[in-house]
C-alpha cells in the first residue's frame, strides 16, 4: 500500500473535499429520487406510475419482445398434477347481468366489420388440453388444467390471417369493464388457447364462462375471463392493469 507524508493542513483539505463531494452526491441522489417520484404518469393506457418508471418498463419490454422465442414452450404437466380447487382471483368484467344464452364472440375485422362466432364455431376446431403452472402477478402460482381452441388455429381457420399481421390483439369483456392488450407473437404462441373448459368441464361462471383466454406465456392478468370482443391493432389496445401501473407486456 502506498504511503505519503503530507502536512496537517493538506490532510484537512483532502478530507474536507472528499466529504463535501460525498455529501453533495448524496443530496443529488435524493433530488433525483424525488424528481422520479414526482413525475406525472403518462396519459393513455400506459398509466398509473411516474413516467420515468414507465419508460424503464417499456425498455424492458422492447428487450424481452426482441428476444422472445415462441418455440420455447411453457412446461406442461400430467392431468393428475392439476389442482381440483382452482383459485379465483378478480371479478372485474364479470357482472351478474350477463346473458349467457345470447353470447357470441365478436371479432372486429380490419375492414371494420364484426364477425360473430357461436361456441359451436369455436368447438369444431381441434381441442387442446393443457396443464401448466398458472402464474399470478401477485406472486403465487397453481398448476391448472384448461381445454380449448388454439388461438392461432382459430385465426387461420376463419381466414383472419391478415388481422394476425397486426402488432397487437385486444380483448374486451361483454360489459366492457375488463380489457387486455397482447402483443401478437405471444397471442400466436401455440399454447395460447380460447378456453371453454376447466378440469374437463365447461368453465365455471367465476372462471369466465363461456370463453376465456389462457395464455401461459403471460401473467394471469392477461388471461381475460369471459371474452366478448376481439380486435386487432398496430397501436397498443387498452389494458386494464397497465392503466393501473402494471407492466403492459407482463410476459414470461
Amino acid at each position: 500500500m502506498k504511503e505519503t507524508i503530507i502536512t496537517e493542513r493538506k490532510l484537512t483539505e483532502k478530507t474536507v473535499i472528499a466529504f463535501t463531494v460525498f455529501i453533495l452526491l448524496f443530496i443529488a441522489a435524493i433530488f433525483v429520487w424525488k424528481w422520479i417520484r414526482n413525475q406525472p404518469a403518462e396519459s393513455g393506457t400506459l398509466s398509473g406510475i411516474p413516467s420515468p418508471l414507465r419508460k424503464g418498463l417499456t425498455i424492458d419490454e422492447k428487450l424481452f419482445r426482441a428476444s422472445f422465442n415462441p418455440n420455447v414452450l411453457v412446461k406442461t404437466y400430467p392431468i393428475s398434477a392439476a389442482a381440483k380447487k382452482v383459485r379465483v382471483n378478480g371479478d372485474v368484467g364479470m357482472g351478474n347481468d350477463f346473458d349467457a344464452g345470447n353470447w357470441k364472440l365478436g371479432v372486429v375485422k380490419d375492414n371494420g366489420d364484426t364477425a360473430f362466432f357461436s361456441m359451436d364455431d369455436i368447438k369444431k376446431l381441434p381441442k387442446t388440453d393443457e396443464v401448466f403452472d398458472f402464474k399470478c402477478i401477485e406472486g403465487w402460482s397453481q398448476k391448472t388444467w384448461w381445454g380449448g381452441t388454439k388461438f392461432s388455429d382459430f385465426l387461420k381457420y376463419y381466414h383472419l390471417d391478415k388481422e394476425a399481421t397486426n402488432s397487437f390483439v385486444g380483448m374486451i369483456t361483454p360489459d366492457k369493464k375488463y380489457y387486455v392488450g397482447i402483443d401478437m407473437p405471444s397471442a400466436l404462441q401455440t399454447q395460447t388457447i380460447l378456453a371453454y373448459e376447466m378440469n374437463g368441464k365447461p368453465l365455471p361462471m367465476d372462471q369466465g364462462y363461456p370463453l376465456r383466454l389462457i395464455i401461459p406465456v403471460k401473467y394471469g392478468i392477461k388471461h381475460i375471463k369471459r371474452i366478448g370482443t376481439i380486435y386487432f391493432s398496430n397501436t397498443r389496445p387498452r389494458d386494464y392493469w397497465a392503466e393501473r401501473g402494471y407492466d403492459y407486456y407482463s410476459g414470461h
Binding site: M1, K2, E3, T4, I5, I6, T7, E8, L11, K14, F22, L25, A29, W33
Partner: peptide, 22 residues
C-alpha cells in the same frame, strides 16, 4: 506532518456508495 496510506481506490468507493441506495 501526517502519514497517510492509500486504502480504498476511487472506483471501489463509487461502486460501494452507488450500491448502497440502489
Amino acid at each position: 506532518m501526517k502519514k497517510i496510506i492509500k486504502k480504498h481506490p476511487l472506483a471501489l468507493r463509487w461502486f460501494h456508495w452507488i450500491n448502497f441506495p440502489i
